Every structure is written in structure tokens, then in C-alpha cells.
Simulated scan of single mutants.
Amino acid sequence: MNSFLQIAICVLLLSGCSFANSQSMPYKSWYLGFSAPNYMEVWIESADVVDIEEQVYPRAMSGNAAIQTPPNNTGDPRGWPERPGIGKGKNVTGADLPQKIYVRWQSLVEPQTYQMVINVPESTREIMRKEEKVFCAFDGKWITDYRNALVINLAPGGIAKIWVMGSCLPAIEVTRVQAVIDPRGPYEGKSGGKHRPLSAVSKAYVEKFDVPYGSWE
């Protein structure tokens, strides 16, 4: 083997090792999900992600947050869930782990438009990188799982609570954020102050019981 080929192979091997070591997470993508308390409907105008490489992923998620609206006012929106679900969202493909998440949303029961910045600490990313052995009841096997889902629960008053979880690993609460009112109103002031309509079932609940402010502290 000539010296040029030896050098070329060494360079390839070294660059491959360097590339592997530069990977921040042990999976190809992570999931960004949103949910809201029963009847407290939310419309996400935009959720923009900045990863730890300073790359921006605009509108990583938009649309309705996951919610339950049981008939006949039988649901209870008060307080945070003991076992939060994964929410409605998307895989953030091509991004590294999150550094910041910018969210602007409409709280339809109020109605009000909020915006916030979630600063994701390194401690949260460490949880997301950590592999754990867990028995997965879904398929009855022990698996290696990661908490590769970041789930944001949005409540009236602009309160957000954030968890990380895996497909078979329980959720870990990582932070709580108080959003501010967006003075421009819905759609950055482009809708003449009109929010999206509230569904009939949620409207009926709020008219009877009101919004349980104070239960999401």
C-alpha cells in the first residue's frame, strides 16, 4: 500500500471518528409535542426551534395542541396531569438537541395571544441523551429507550410546563415558563384581532364552570 493511500485512509478514519464524536444525540430526530388541559383549547401559531448548533428551524410545529373534550362537561381541566401524554406534534428532523424554543399561541377560552421563549438547559439535554433499560409493556420486552420527546403543556394565563419523556420511559418535568401577552394580538396583528373560534363543547364548559385560573401554578 503506497504512502498516499495510507494517509488517505487515516484521514478518512480520523474524520469519521471526529464526525461520530460530534453527534450530540444518539438518535436521528427528537419529538416536539403540545397539549392543553381538558376544554382549554389552544392554537399554536408557530413553534420555532434553535438547536445547540445555532441552527433555526422555523414552524417546527403549528396547529392544534392535543386536548380531551369529554361530553356533558365530565372532564376536569384543573391542574397538571400526573402522567402527561406525548401531545400532538412533529419530529424535528435534521436538528440537534434544542437550545431555545420560541412559541406563539392563541388561548381560545380567554381569548388571548401569548408568546414565550423556553431556554432549554444543558441538564435537560443530558436527560435526553441518557439511555435507560426499561420494560416496555407495549410489546412485553426490555428495551433501551431515550427520553427523546419534549412535550409542552399550555394552560390559560400563559402558563407552560415542560416535560421530557420516551416511548416507554415516564415523563420528567424539567421547567415551567410564564409567557407574556403578544400585544400584536392573533396572527401578529394580521387578523383584525380575531382569534380562532372555540368549539361548542369547550364553550359550554367555560360558560358553566369558567376558566379555573390558579389551578396550574
Rank of each mutant, 00 (worst) to 15 (best):
N2L: 03
L5D: 11
C10G: 09
C10H: 08
L14S: 14
F19Q: 08
S24T: 13
K28C: 02
K28S: 07
S29W: 03
L32N: 00
G33T: 04
G33Q: 02
S35Q: 06
S35L: 13
N38F: 04
M40R: 01
M40V: 14
W43F: 14
W43C: 07
D48G: 06
V49K: 05
E53Q: 13
Q55W: 02
V56Q: 12
Y57W: 09
R59Y: 11
M61A: 15
S62W: 08
G63L: 06
N64H: 03
A65M: 07
A66M: 07
A66C: 05
I67L: 12
Q68D: 09
N72A: 08
N72I: 03
N73V: 01
R78I: 02
W80F: 08
W80G: 11
I86S: 12
G87P: 09
K90V: 07
N91M: 07
G94R: 02
D96A: 10
Q99C: 05
K100N: 10
V103C: 05
R104K: 11
Q106F: 09
P111Q: 10
Q115N: 09
M116L: 15
V117A: 14
P121E: 11
P121M: 14
T124V: 15
I127Q: 09
M128Y: 07
K130L: 10
E131G: 15
K133D: 13
C136R: 00
A137V: 11
A137E: 11
D139I: 01
W142T: 15
T144W: 07
A149C: 12
I152L: 14
N153I: 08
P156Q: 15
I159D: 00
I159W: 00
I162S: 08
W163Y: 15
V164M: 13
V164P: 14
G166A: 12
G166V: 07
S167K: 10
S167L: 13
C168I: 06
C168D: 07
A171L: 03
I172L: 13
Q178N: 15
V180M: 08
P183A: 06
Y187D: 13
E188P: 00
G189C: 13
G189K: 10
S191T: 15
G193W: 06
H195N: 10
R196N: 13
R196Y: 03
S199K: 05
A200C: 01
S202R: 00
K203F: 05
K203N: 08
A204I: 01
A204W: 01
Y205L: 08
P212W: 04
Y213F: 13
G214M: 01
G214Q: 03
